[in-house]
Computed example of a mutant assay.
Amino acid sequence: MASYPELSAGFTSRIGGVSKEAYGSLNCGLHVGDDPEDVVQNRIRLAEALSISFDACTYAEQVHGKEIQVVGPAQRGAGKNSRETALQAKDGFVTQERGLFLFAQFADCVPLFFYDPVHHAVGLAHAGWKGTALQIAKATLETMSAAFGTKPRDVLAAIGPSIGGCCYEVDDTVISRIDNVIQDLHKGGGAPHGEQPIYKTKDNGKYNLNLQELNRQIMMKAGILPIHIEVSSLCTSCRTDLFFSHRKEGGKTGRMAAWIGLRAPSI
């Protein structure tokens, strides 16, 4: 953002809103049982903090898939104050529209940010273990390429706060799907090599899975340069003082928002 002033991207904490109890206090999710009026007020506060119009905020209903939507003027503001008007069954969305901001919701899953400074396009994706197994990062890049002419080597990417390999315990069912992704990454040679293992076997027969590292490797295999990928070191499960964590808090909790967009040119 320092290099590209038109870009606005980031990730909220759980602090600074009006929601109460389990959703305290900046819950941005309408689907978790919180008072909808409080959630909308939180979303308005977020827009005000970003100095953008609430009408420019565009939300989706996420389903842990890999469907990507190209967002244009007709979708501007979708879902900002109701689930019914949100972009339905989409876990990623991309746009070239200035003055339109994409928002997705998280409480352990991995937020993926994409910016193509050559074609002035942005993308945002929601990657839980299912979306990661479906390689939603690759699908997002492919959609940007088809829609905007994006070349992966030009893309600047970021992987936001999520549950980390320190805390994310999964079973054989999940790891069998993850192993398929790892095998795919190694096809054709030139497989990306990470500094961290993707998962570690535990004494109890389960595994600690590092979804951030796997998404980083998927991005690299898809053509994004390693030096163009920023990775947050924050774990949502370790830091429930800062973040909501679906796993750590037993399922009843709020949602953070990730956002990305390009500001309209100043007149």
Rank of each mutant, 00 (worst) to 15 (best):
residue 3 S to M: 11
residue 5 P to I: 13
residue 5 P to S: 09
residue 6 E to H: 09
residue 8 S to P: 07
residue 9 A to T: 08
residue 11 F to S: 00
residue 12 T to A: 04
residue 12 T to H: 00
residue 16 G to Y: 12
residue 20 K to M: 05
residue 20 K to A: 07
residue 20 K to F: 04
residue 21 E to I: 12
residue 22 A to K: 13
residue 23 Y to M: 13
residue 23 Y to H: 12
residue 25 S to M: 08
residue 26 L to I: 07
residue 30 L to I: 12
residue 32 V to Q: 02
residue 33 G to C: 07
residue 36 P to D: 14
residue 37 E to N: 15
residue 40 V to G: 08
residue 41 Q to P: 09
residue 44 I to Q: 07
residue 48 E to W: 10
residue 52 I to D: 04
residue 53 S to I: 06
residue 53 S to R: 06
residue 58 T to I: 05
residue 58 T to K: 00
residue 60 A to S: 10
residue 61 E to A: 12
residue 63 V to H: 05
residue 69 Q to C: 12
residue 73 P to Q: 09
residue 74 A to E: 14
residue 78 A to Y: 09
residue 80 K to L: 10
residue 81 N to H: 15
residue 82 S to I: 08
residue 82 S to H: 09
residue 84 E to W: 15
residue 84 E to P: 15
residue 85 T to V: 11
residue 86 A to D: 00
residue 88 Q to C: 13
residue 89 A to S: 13
residue 93 F to V: 06
residue 94 V to D: 02
residue 97 E to S: 03
residue 97 E to A: 07
residue 102 L to G: 01
residue 104 A to Q: 12
residue 107 A to R: 06
residue 108 D to A: 01
residue 110 V to I: 14
residue 111 P to S: 09
residue 113 F to V: 09
residue 113 F to K: 02
residue 115 Y to F: 15
residue 117 P to R: 09
residue 118 V to C: 07
residue 123 G to K: 09
residue 124 L to H: 00
residue 126 H to S: 11
residue 127 A to R: 01
residue 128 G to P: 15
residue 131 G to L: 13
residue 132 T to E: 13
residue 134 L to F: 12
residue 136 I to S: 05
residue 136 I to T: 02
residue 139 A to V: 03
residue 140 T to I: 07
residue 140 T to H: 01
residue 140 T to S: 06
residue 141 L to Q: 04
residue 144 M to Q: 02
residue 145 S to D: 06
residue 145 S to Y: 00
residue 146 A to K: 01
residue 146 A to M: 05
residue 150 T to I: 01
residue 153 R to Y: 14
residue 157 A to W: 03
residue 157 A to C: 14
residue 158 A to K: 03
residue 160 G to Q: 04
residue 160 G to T: 06
residue 162 S to H: 05
residue 164 G to F: 07
residue 168 Y to V: 03
residue 171 D to V: 14
residue 172 D to N: 13
residue 173 T to K: 13
residue 174 V to P: 02
residue 174 V to F: 04
residue 176 S to W: 08
residue 188 G to I: 10
residue 188 G to W: 07
residue 191 A to M: 14
residue 193 H to P: 08
residue 194 G to W: 11
residue 195 E to F: 12
residue 196 Q to F: 13
residue 202 K to F: 06
residue 203 D to L: 05
residue 206 K to T: 15
residue 208 N to P: 09
residue 209 L to C: 12
residue 213 E to A: 04
residue 213 E to L: 02
residue 215 N to A: 02
residue 215 N to P: 01
residue 216 R to L: 07
residue 216 R to Y: 04
residue 217 Q to P: 07
residue 217 Q to W: 03
residue 219 M to E: 00
residue 220 M to C: 11
residue 220 M to N: 05
residue 224 I to G: 01
residue 228 H to E: 10
residue 229 I to T: 05
residue 230 E to Q: 08
residue 230 E to A: 13
residue 231 V to D: 08
residue 232 S to H: 04
residue 233 S to I: 06
residue 237 S to K: 10
residue 239 R to V: 06
residue 240 T to E: 04
residue 241 D to F: 00
residue 245 S to A: 02
residue 246 H to P: 07
residue 247 R to M: 12
residue 250 G to K: 11
residue 253 T to I: 10
residue 255 R to G: 10
residue 256 M to C: 11
residue 264 A to P: 06
residue 264 A to G: 11
residue 267 I to Q: 14
